[in-house]
Simulated assay, not measured.
Amino acid sequence: MIIAQLTDIHIGFEPDAKPEELNRTRFRATLDRLVSQPNVPDLLVCTGDITDRGDAESFARTAALLEGLPFPVMMMVGNHDSRAGLLAAFPDTATNDGFVQCAFEQDGLLVVLLDTLEEGRHGGAFCTRRRDWLRGVLEANRETPTLVFMHHPPVVSGIGWMDPAPGEAWIRNLEAAFDGMDQVQAIHCGHLHRPLATSFCGIPLNVTPAVAPLVSLDLRPISGELPDSRPLITTEPPTYALHHWDGQRVATHYEKVCDWDVIAYYGPHLQPMIREMERERVG
């Protein structure tokens, strides 16, 4: 099974841009690549910040671009979204106790989508109701390999203006839900607009870069009292993730969406190399 992940699309950042806003152009290019690349996903998960302002028009524009994809799409909320706006545009989205989150099993893998939104707050949230729901799902599926998606990374990356404070209440709630749940193979997030590989509660945690423009990689301390002209946002290419489940483990691949040249094709001249590699694997 292959699960594609797109995150941080931010449709509506420039709603009146002509002929088309940059974020929509980047989203369209990413969808075109996702459909044309050779690894057909079984599912696409969009892990939040679908829109920039949570407005109905931006959600409707997003829904129009997703129409006709040859695989199902599951939507999640980020801090720039609104639950009401998302559910109006995507009425089939699963909810639980008023939150946009769910869990389902496919091909022997439990996939959990979490809602980390507190409307009006930039950073993450995960209340005790969500904690108890997640703990119950994981307790009931201790023998099932599990993959978790959420918008906000519950970790400190070093990019200070995007990070939570260590030990925030919502992070402690997540820690309580994940404690001892060694069936969770990985957690995949968005929000940071940059790639990141780390761990949370002993579980591998990765961040998929944004479809919208990326956050600059700058780990120096930052102060709200001292605007120092550092770059904050860059035009690095949009990126998507493919999470490949082979029945035993999840392997994650990232691809940037940009122009590149192919310098080698698999023809008869490279067949001996491929055969030799095959022999090594069974030797």
Rank of each mutant, 00 (worst) to 15 (best):
3 I>M: 15
8 D>P: 05
10 H>Y: 07
12 G>K: 07
19 P>N: 09
20 E>C: 13
23 N>F: 09
26 R>M: 11
28 R>W: 00
28 R>K: 08
31 L>W: 10
32 D>Q: 14
32 D>S: 12
32 D>Y: 05
48 G>M: 05
51 T>E: 06
55 D>M: 12
56 A>F: 12
59 F>C: 04
65 L>Y: 10
67 E>Y: 00
73 V>N: 06
74 M>Y: 09
77 V>W: 02
79 N>V: 00
86 L>K: 01
86 L>G: 00
87 L>V: 00
95 T>G: 02
96 N>S: 10
97 D>M: 08
97 D>R: 11
100 V>K: 10
111 V>L: 03
113 L>I: 05
114 L>D: 01
115 D>W: 01
121 R>M: 01
123 G>Q: 09
123 G>F: 04
126 F>N: 08
127 C>I: 00
129 R>D: 11
130 R>V: 01
131 R>D: 01
132 D>Q: 11
134 L>H: 12
134 L>E: 13
142 R>H: 06
143 E>N: 14
143 E>K: 15
145 P>S: 04
146 T>Q: 04
147 L>H: 13
155 V>Y: 08
156 V>S: 05
158 G>W: 06
160 G>C: 00
161 W>P: 02
164 P>G: 04
165 A>K: 14
169 A>E: 15
175 E>R: 09
176 A>E: 14
181 M>C: 13
187 I>D: 01
189 C>H: 06
192 L>R: 05
195 P>G: 07
195 P>N: 07
199 S>K: 08
201 C>L: 04
204 P>V: 05
209 P>V: 05
220 R>H: 12
220 R>V: 04
230 R>K: 14
231 P>Q: 11
234 T>S: 15
237 P>E: 03
237 P>C: 05
238 P>Y: 08
241 A>P: 04
249 R>Q: 15
252 T>S: 15
258 C>W: 06
260 W>Q: 07
261 D>Y: 10
263 I>N: 12
271 Q>W: 15
274 I>H: 13
274 I>M: 13
274 I>W: 13
277 M>C: 13
278 E>T: 13
280 E>V: 06
282 V>C: 10
282 V>Y: 11
